[in-house]
Design a protein around this nucleic acid. Structure first.
Lengths: 165, 165
DNA sequence: TTTTTAGTTCTGCAATAAAAGAACCAAAAA
DNA sequence: TTTTTGGTTCTTTTATTGCAGAACTAAAAA
């Protein structure tokens, strides 16, 4: 007996990887990046070499390299090394999702700035519409304030989860 | 004197429309959709006809039609009509941004489901990594709970804003 | 009834993005 | 020193997207 729960069969894995890939796709990720995330979520052990990635994902070295660097940039992937082993072992950077969220905040900040400018450029001839834009800014402000709070809450909860183990 | 604040000159408007367009682009919107949002933010009056959109944005009727329907689908654009006038007047749907946010929540729900499945598919051989996935799910749960709360808060604040006018 | 208006839908092309392949490079091994 | 390993970078090919143009439609106007 390998362990309490046996690792699922290969073709089921491929199926799930595709499904995860599609969801990531919808968030604007390139297809291979989505699949790679999917593979990392299911991979056992959770760290994989460059070549293992290329083989499982059936993709070229260049595509793997580019995609790894893309995901690294987003804070979603990192690598570890082992003494006396030249290879890098890549894996999902499971506890730096806050970095990913912070990245999304940059967009909120930009949008907020643009709406603010738009409002300043407008006349007072259409106060009701202007109020709508103010409301929009208000929503961005609430998010910009709320997201870091949610991250804090998350970190506490994660700590609790780890403690109770 | 037209009003307290005069409406800005045309070429400044075009400049700002492009800038807003770029930010929208970064959120994954097609270029014309981003520009259209920009134009709607600055337009006076804030409602524009199909032809006015086509002319200002220098785009074909088909592109305008497609883009309008895309933005309508997202809950970002709506149209009004006037008695005895066949035309539709399109405008930014400024107070249904909650719908846009709810749309983003669908993605969070999907991702949460996929991670949950992944976790169930995994063995117990790598508990630390599994814990990382649990933490990830936890983050999604916090967002799924927090976003509606933020929307509520927003609606209250918007009411206050309107009242104090 | 025919014509015009206000759009929509379908087809095809141009621009962009994703991935492949080959050339390349630095560190380690032989 | 040469070769192999573990990648990266540059160029080319392929797939996808975004938009234009023309054909179309339903309602209103003439």
């Amino acid at each position: 007996m390998r362990s309490k729960k046996d690792y699922m069969e290969q073709h089921k894995v491929k199926e799930m990887v595709e499904r995860i890939g599609i969801v990531c796709d919808k968030d604007g990720m390139p297809p291979l990046a989505g699949r790679m995330v999917g593979f990392f979520m299911l991979a056992e052990p959770p760290h994989k070499t460059f070549d293992e990635l290329a083989e499982f994902l059936q993709a070229s070295k260049s595509a793997i390299s580019t995609t790894l660097r893309f995901l690294e940039g987003q804070g979603m992937v990192e690598y570890i090394t082992f003494p006396g082993d030249r290879k890098r072992y890549f894996r999902l950077s499971v506890d730096s999702w806050d970095k990913v969220v912070m990245g999304k905040m940059d967009f909120l900040k930009m949008m907020h700035a643009r709406v603010s400018e738009a409002l300043q450029a407008r006349s007072n001839d259409y106060p009701e519409f202007n109020m709508g834009l103010k409301a929009m800014m208000c929503l961005y402000e609430i998010f910009l304030e709320g997201l870091p709070k949610m991250i804090d809450l998350w970190q506490k909860k994660v700590q609790d989860l780890k403690d109770e183990q």
